[in-house]
Amino acid sequence: MSIAPEPSTSRGDITLQPGYFTSSLYVEPLREDLKTLTKLFSEQYEAAERPFELFKRLWTEHGWCWLHLRVYDGRGRQTFLRITERVFIERLASTEPLLDRLVALFALYTFHNSQPSSSAPPIYVAPNIAIPIDTYEEMVSLPATVTEPHLLRLRPYAVHVLTTLLDAHVLEILPHSSLRAQNPSILPREVFVVEGQETPTVLQPEGAVDEEGISPSKKKPKKKKGRPSKRDKARKAKDALASLEKYVDKNTVYLIDETDPMSNTEPESTHVVLGQAPHSSLHNYLARKNDLLAAVSHDGAGVAGSSDATQRQGALQRANEAVLERLRQIDAMAAEKGLEVGGEGGEKTGLKRVERAVDELRQCNGSSGILGLLEGAGLGTSR
Rank of each mutant, 00 (worst) to 15 (best):
M1K: 10
T9F: 15
S10R: 13
I14H: 08
T15C: 14
Q17T: 07
T22E: 14
V27R: 11
D33V: 02
T38C: 08
L40K: 14
F41T: 00
S42Q: 09
E46Q: 10
E49D: 10
P51C: 06
P51I: 12
E53G: 06
W59Y: 12
H62G: 04
D73G: 07
R77I: 06
T79F: 09
E85N: 02
I89A: 12
I89M: 06
I89H: 00
I89D: 00
R91K: 03
T95L: 15
P97W: 14
P97I: 04
P97Y: 14
V103K: 00
A104C: 01
Y109C: 08
Y109F: 12
N113E: 06
S114M: 06
S114G: 09
S119W: 09
A120E: 11
P122T: 09
I123K: 01
Y124A: 05
V125I: 09
V125K: 00
N128G: 13
A130P: 04
P132L: 07
P132I: 07
M139I: 01
V140F: 07
T147S: 15
E148R: 06
L151D: 01
L152G: 03
R153T: 02
L154I: 06
R155D: 03
R155L: 00
P156N: 03
H160Y: 06
T163M: 07
L165T: 05
L165W: 07
L165S: 06
A168L: 11
S177V: 04
S178K: 05
L179E: 14
S185T: 05
S185L: 07
S185I: 04
R189N: 13
R189I: 02
V191C: 02
P200C: 02
E206A: 12
D210Y: 11
D210S: 06
E211L: 14
G213Q: 08
S215W: 03
P216K: 03
P216D: 03
K218Q: 15
K218T: 08
K220F: 03
K220C: 02
K220Y: 04
K225V: 03
G226Y: 02
P228H: 01
R231I: 11
D232S: 08
A234H: 14
E245A: 13
K246L: 13
Y247N: 13
V248R: 05
D249I: 10
Y254W: 14
I256Q: 15
T259D: 11
P261L: 02
M262E: 08
N264K: 12
E268C: 08
Q276E: 06
Q276M: 11
P278G: 07
S281L: 15
N284R: 14
L286N: 10
A287F: 10
K289W: 04
A294K: 09
V296T: 07
A304C: 06
A304I: 11
G305M: 04
D308Y: 08
A309Y: 02
Q311C: 07
R318M: 11
E321H: 07
E325D: 10
L327P: 04
R328C: 11
Q329W: 12
D331W: 02
A332E: 13
G338T: 11
G338Y: 10
E340C: 15
G343H: 11
K352E: 10
V354H: 05
A357M: 00
A357P: 01
A357N: 01
V358C: 05
D359Q: 13
R362W: 08
G366R: 00
I370H: 02
G372P: 03
G378L: 02
G378Y: 05
G380C: 08
T381K: 15
R383P: 14
